[in-house]
């Protein structure tokens, strides 16, 4: 479970990377792991801690798709939309998956249970279509997989 933003924990994260060159990305990954997303106060805090401008921190956070500005659902499903998955009708399957939960790309269900995001390649291209649920790889997806994922996230 992720904790609420607090400077003590953030300080501990920054110290963990003390002496590391160009540490902003590893720090942001740790911040997101700790708090579930990159909270607004983290921008100012990290700018101060690393002696860089707030604009620089904001620029990095907003550049990379992984860094969230708000909390995601309890489960995160990443569906691959790249060519290998397209060739196996991944787009149609993704549409059915989104419809099943009444979501659009990047959306979270009202009960906060599930977020569905697009990803561009998981390296499972010989077993398309593929996805990742909470960091676990899934491949050769079909309509049965939609039910399986629904069961998993509503458990």
């Amino acid at each position: 479970m992720s904790s609420r933003w607090n400077e003590a924990e953030a300080t501990e994260i920054v110290c963990r990377h003390d002496g590391r060159e160009g540490a902003l990305l590893p720090i942001l990954h740790d911040v997101q792991a700790a708090f579930g997303f990159v909270p607004e106060p983290a921008i100012k805090f990290l700018a101060h801690a690393l002696n860089i401008t707030r604009a620089e921190v904001h620029g990095v956070v907003s550049f990379y798709r992984d860094f969230r500005r708000e909390r995601a659902g309890r489960h995160v499903l990443k569906l691959c939309r790249a060519e290998a998955c397209q060739s196996m009708d991944g787009e149609a399957l993704a549409r059915r998956m989104l419809d099943r939960f009444g979501l659009d790309w990047g959306g979270t269900t009202p009960d906060g249970r599930l977020t569905i995001e697009a990803t561009y390649c998981l390296g499972l291209c010989a077993s398309a279509p593929s996805a990742m649920l909470d960091g676990e790889p899934m491949a050769r997806l079909n309509d049965g997989s939609i039910d399986e994922i629904a069961r998993e996230v509503t458990r």
């Binding site: 590391r20 990305l25 590893p26 942001l28 990954h29 550049f63 990379y64 798709r65 992984d66 860094f67 990803t119 561009y120």
Partner: peptide, 10 residues
């Protein structure tokens, strides 16, 4: 060797 992890940018 130090491992660095990307953040979703092709």
């Amino acid at each position: 060797i130090e491992v660095r992890v990307g953040a979703g940018a092709y």
